[in-house]
Design a protein around this nucleic acid. Structure first.
Lengths: 239, 239
DNA sequence: TACTGTGAATGAGTTCACAGCC
DNA sequence: GGCTGTGAACTCATTCACAGTA
């Protein structure tokens, strides 16, 4: 158990109840609060694509070119990127490096997020070995697993604990994010335990809708639902 | 490239000819072309939840209850489900079994989709063993892998072929869907080969935007992007 | 010249509120 | 009474079109 200095972006996940009446916090540069939901849902894609250009040494990118890559209109790109201010130059395009920084800040991935994985089945195993998480600022601290046969091992440098010890171990880790890769049946109960322990966000791969306190953010990834989305797109390919 | 529509309860002989010009608001039978995109994106969730109720023996469900489960408003549920016509009864709720059938038909998952997996890395391995796909009508026919050490095996009853044999083997399989679980670098080239072989849809796990002929549908699942979405939701927890 | 940034117009999606039916 | 189905109002998102600027 090494002490983990949480290089958090800005705030501490103290459970702030619904104390309303206070104006929203003034964040340093980009007021992320005023990013519309539709734009927010595209930010990750923009970042991925811009990082690709950055690695390739491209210094500026035009709304037109970026839009063609992503299948979006140029005007939509401009609308979205204008929210971040000064990175576009008329006649030239957008500063790639600057935008990457601004997007990471807006997404909250300019710092490190302490993350645990719950569930070391097939999917969990794949996730541990997926390096894309670390690259984007998500540091995997521990794995919790139900099957005691797997407990005690170390995978990719990450210790595997018994999920029964969740309440004992998690509070020592200052963990903000959990990745839930368990079957549908235990998912809700585990998510509730994570929420009680003060987790701020859960990436849920279990094919169930979690119901938790509203101050715990969840993002669902259901592989079957994604395939259904694809089937729908194929059947409705005319248009 | 044709989906297989096995007959469900009442399939109405909707004229498939392109002759338009008649105001269409007559039958409540589902003409999937008129499902708005926003509704379409929720269909898979509805189906998952309704199947859950169906397994539990629940015969009717109210918009209110379904909405609470999914985090949607009751009026939104009613708007969406009204597109499918006759499954709601005033004062009672919606017929679960009927809706499940209608949703599967609308999604195109009332038949079987022949599917191949390309890429047998960590994620590919997990996907092969994920039974949710088969349950929703996606039949895995074959796996194609670059690493020749893995070629020749049979995993979960599915043969592993050399990806070099893609052009030889795929045309014999009448495959409609491909799941692409390879690194970013080879993804675009592989997707293009799949498209050339007549694949109708690709579920893309590689962290790149594919550019293909428009008649090939793609759905992207980028795990890093999903985690970023979560980080954004946490930072903007006022949602 | 060739791009961005942005008001104005358009379009899509959601919620309201209540009529209609079980 | 209690629900669904739906016109109407409203809110949010996208596109258009062009002024502004490097």
């Amino acid at each position: 158990m090494q002490p983990e200095p949480p290089q958090e972006p800005n705030d501490d996940p103290a459970d702030s109840a619904l104390g309303e009446g206070v104006p929203p916090d003034r964040l340093p540069s980009v007021r992320s609060g005023d990013i519309p939901a539709a734009t927010a849902s595209r930010l990750g894609l923009y970042l991925r694509e811009l990082q690709h250009f950055l690695r390739g040494g491209t210094e500026t990118i035009k709304s037109n070119a970026l839009g063609r890559r992503l299948g979006l209109s140029d005007s939509q790109i401009r609308r979205d990127l204008a929210l971040f201010g000064e990175f576009g130059k008329r006649g030239v395009g957008y500063n790639v490096a600057g935008l990457v920084g601004a997007l990471r800040q807006a997404l909250g991935t300019d710092g490190q997020w302490n993350t645990v994985l719950v569930g070391l089945g097939n999917l969990g195993n794949a996730l541990v070995r997926y390096r894309g998480f670390e690259q984007q600022g998500f540091s995997l601290q521990a794995i919790f697993e139900l099957d005691s046969a797997k407990v005690g091992a170390t995978i990719e440098g990450v210790p595997v604990h018994d999920v029964a010890d969740l309440e004992r171990i998690l509070p020592t880790l200052k963990t903000q994010m959990a990745i839930l890769a368990v079957p549908a049946a235990p998912a809700q109960a585990l998510a509730a335990r994570l929420a009680d322990l003060g987790i701020s966000g859960i990436l849920n791969f279990a094919p169930v809708s979690l119901s938790l306190r509203k101050d715990v953010a969840t993002v669902d990834v259901d592989l079957a639902v994604e395939l259904q989305r694809l089937a729908f797109a194929v059947v409705n390919s005319d248009r």
